[in-house]
Design a protein around this nucleic acid. Structure first.
Length: 444
RNA sequence: GGAGAGGUGGCCGAGUGGUUUAAGGCGGCGGUCUUGAAAACCGCUGUACCGAAAGGUACCGGGGGUUCGAAUCCCUCCCUCUCCGCCA
């Protein structure tokens, strides 16, 4: 959500953002509704003011205990007179009350309209962000490491996982339907090893480890920007009006909603390991092979809440990107960083980098991480504020990035470290988390 | 899941329908006094929206209702606590 004042004063910028982000937002209607909304408020405020005056007067005439009433009696007025005058004022007040009621009904409709429209206004992308229509217009910024070339016919992660008895998709599907899987034995060890390495790395870099709820109130989904629009992508518990999060970003960012932080609390740096749930509606037929796109997975996510300072949040954007890179480098995986273009970045984001890791079976760099900065967009929706040095209350800036998501990351990990005999060498950084295991071998 | 008690400003806490302003305390800020500090005393001290401003309006957990008038009465939801039941 943006500041309505900012929207009023920067209509062209917002219009541009709607266009380049390909966001459907009826800006003209919003501005009309806004004008109407303010006019109604002024009128209603005036009427309420009048109503307060009148009912206060009634109070004088109708309350025998008031000093004013006693004085009136002492001045020679009778109780009947006072009562009659009170009735007259009361009648006028009742009229005003009806006017207020009518106006309030209208105000409510207009306010609902206004809110719904406000939720659709996109954040303005940074100047650096490439303009483009979709993924294909993202711009590569950097490459690290070399994709491996094989001197034998390499297997993909499904063949490897089956052969080693560590990935069992068939039984996963039996249990839970398509896009589900089991990890077994060394597969589970590897999965946990990667997540623990990520938690340890982010913890050593000054991020507080947090354990969060994964089933949250719908308002947190609205607050982080997943709703409205993303309802189809989430599992929702109708009865409880709660949703399963698709990422711990939701809980980590919303944990400070409705708070006024002091500037000395900032920046807040947190990280959580959580299961993530995604319906993947509309992705039918896409990435159906293997464990690339699945309904639930585990992810370590990092979130920063900082002061409302563009330069500061840019600095943290680079920091959270570097944190993720440190993990990939420890895992010795080749990756590249792409700057996500306007059409692919999402409504709320100012700037977004994806990290794509090389996956031999897909013969491509594929998304494994996503680092976004939102400016005030999420903080406004969630009402996360702080008091600055001048004691002014301001909205914070928020950012987030993946640290590691598994089992997706197991795809490059298994495929790049495979040997001709179908075994997989465990990267050195993971061995301490796997009882020192150096290789995952074929079962006897 | 059942029964009961609650939710008031940054914190504590009074307030069961009306002299139109949520008492009082703590904390915080400013001042007087002081070489400085403490104490004492005085003043200020919530958020949001509308407005050029003056000013106005809303908010006592959320939403709805009764009334000329609601922190106060009614309905409903959320949350906290106590007891019981169930339980990893």
């Amino acid at each position: 959500m943006l500041d309505i004042k900012f929207i009023r004063e920067n209509v062209d910028k917002i219009r541009g953002a709607c266009e380049t982000k390909r966001v459907d937002c009826d800006l003209d209607r919003l501005l009309t509704v806004d004008t109407h909304r303010r006019a109604i408020q002024q009128e209603a405020d005036t009427l309420r003011n009048r109503s307060k005056e009148l009912s206060g007067q009634v109070g004088l005439y109708k309350n025998p205990n008031s000093k004013w009433y006693q004085q009136a009696l002492a001045d020679g007025r009778t109780a009947d007179e006072l009562s009659a005058e009170g009735d007259k004022i009361q009648a006028e007040s009742a009229q005003v009350k009806q006017q207020i009621k009518d106006l309030e009904d209208e105000a409510k409709t207009v306010a609902d309209d206004f809110k719904a429209l406000m939720l659709t206004v996109p954040q303005v992308p940074s100047e650096k962000t490439p303009v483009g229509k979709d993924e294909s217009d993202n711009v590569e910024a950097q490459r690290v490491g070399e994709p491996r070339t094989f001197d034998f016919e390499p297997k993909d992660h499904v063949e490897l996982g089956n052969g080693l008895g560590i990935i069992d998709i068939e039984r996963g599907v039996k249990l839970a339907g398509s896009r589900n899987y089991l990890l077994r034995g060394a597969g589970t060890l590897l999965h946990h090893a990667v997540l623990r390495l990520a938690m340890d790395t982010i913890g050593m870099r000054g991020y507080e480890p947090v354990t969060v709820p994964v089933l949250v109130r719908d308002e947190m989904m609205y607050g982080t920007g997943y709703y409205p629009g993303g309802e189809e992508q989430a599992y929702r518990c109708e009865r409880d009006e709660k949703s399963l999060v698709g990422t711990a970003e939701v809980s980590l960012t919303a944990m400070h909603s409705d708070e006024i932080l002091s500037e000395s609390d900032l920046p807040i740096k947190v990280a959580a390991l959580s299961t993530c749930f995604r319906r993947e509606a509309g992705a039918a037929g896409k990435d159906t092979y293997g464990i690339y796109r699945i309904h639930s997975f585990d992810k370590v996510e990092q979130v920063v809440v900082c002061r409302a300072d563009e330069a500061e949040s840019e600095t943290f954007h680079h920091e959270i990107l570097a944190n993720a890179e440190a993990v990939l480098q420890a895992l010795e995986l080749p990756y590249r960083i792409v700057m996500v273009c306007t059409g692919d970045m999402g409504q709320g984001k100012v700037e977004m980098y994806d990290i794509e890791t090389w996956m031999p079976s897909r013969e491509a760099y594929c998304e494994t991480h996503s680092a976004s900065r939102f400016g005030e967009f999420q903080a406004r929706r969630l009402n996360i504020r702080y008091r600055d040095a001048d004691k002014r209350i301001r909205f914070c800036h928020t950012l987030n990035n993946t640290v590691i998501a598994s089992p997706r990351i197991l795809i490059p990990l298994l495929e790049l470290n495979q040997n001709a005999d179908g075994s997989v060498t465990v990267p050195k950084a993971l061995r301490p988390y796997m009882h020192g295991m150096e290789r995952i071998e074929m079962p006897e």
